[in-house]
């Protein structure tokens, strides 16, 4: 599904290398988690994959089902099936949440050569999916993320994911700013989307999200590289001992 080879990335505005050769291979239906200390390059990886400005790829490749992601515009990557749930979802005053969702869904359908959804059909689907995430009609009417609580913003991200039905989902610190109940709700939303054809990359600082979204593979990232890969037990090791042991061990 997602294949990253020797990916090296530096900042556009200063000569600082953030990713120093990342290799990652996620098979269809698998859930991978990336953990790592602050500044290890986890979020940068998610931005570079989704096409945010400000980064320069100096070496390596990233493909989604064999298609080169890095040469595509962000909207093309989305249409190809990539989705990033933002760590800090963006507020867009003046754009209604519903308008935003419908514009996005129909833009992707158009890019894939499908017919646009009618307003009625769209409404039906969105209401059903919103309900399971406890997103009420009021939240759908309000401008995108404006005045939303931290939990509402993250649930809104998962709603977008559910509506867009991507095949590769990247969750960037989706647990940050969430209380236990909100985290459970978000995790349930994610788990409901798990399927054979859909893969996940879950970026997190803490093991607790992984109690709810069970990963198949856990990677530890430090200083722009994946330094260790293992099963779910690796996350527990981090939870119990911190990163220090692993960093020393690898060094």
């Amino acid at each position: 599904m997602l294949e990253i080879k020797g990916l090296k990335v530096k900042l556009e505005e200063e000569d600082k290398e953030i990713l120093k050769g990342v290799d990652l291979n996620i098979a269809p239906g698998m859930v991978h988690a990336i953990m790592g200390p602050n500044g290890s390059g986890k979020s940068t990886l998610s931005y570079v994959l989704s096409g945010r400005d400000g980064y320069v790829v100096t070496d390596g490749s990233a493909t989604l089902d064999g298609v080169d992601l890095l040469s595509m515009a962000p909207e093309e990557r989305a249409a190809a099936g990539l989705f990033l749930a933002f760590q800090y979802p963006v507020e867009i005053p003046g754009v209604g949440n519903m308008t935003f969702l419908r514009t996005a869904v129909n833009a992707q359908r158009k890019a894939r050569g499908q017919d646009e959804l009618s307003a009625g059909d769209f409404l039906k689907v969105v209401r059903e999916k919103a309900k399971s995430l406890k997103i009420d009609a009021e939240m759908l009417k309000r401008p995108v993320n404006v005045g939303f609580s931290g939990g509402e913003k993250k649930r809104n991200e998962i709603l977008q994911m559910a509506m867009l039905e991507p095949k590769m989902c990247i969750l960037d610190e989706t647990d940050s700013g969430l209380d236990v109940d909100a985290m459970k709700l978000v995790a349930e939303g994610v788990n409901a989307l798990r399927s054979e054809g859909r893969s996940f990359l879950v970026i997190t600082h803490y093991q607790r999200l992984l109690d709810h979204i069970k990963p198949d593979v856990v990677h530890i990232m430090a200083d722009g590289r994946i330094i260790k890969t293992g099963g779910p037990e690796l996350a527990l090791e981090v939870e119990n001992n911190g990163y220090a042991d692993i960093l020393t061990e690898v060094a």
């Binding site: 096409g51 962000p74 867009i92 005053p93 754009v95 935003f100």
Partner: peptide
């Protein structure tokens, strides 16, 4: 707003359409 533009594009909205959406949002008030 470049961040909002990126957010919209990351959801599959083409750049021109995203810019127009943000422009209309600006005028909305």
């Amino acid at each position: 707003d470049e961040t909002a533009l990126y957010y919209l594009r990351s959801r599959g909205v083409p750049a021109d359409q995203a810019r127009n959406l943000l422009t209309l949002a600006f005028l909305a008030e």
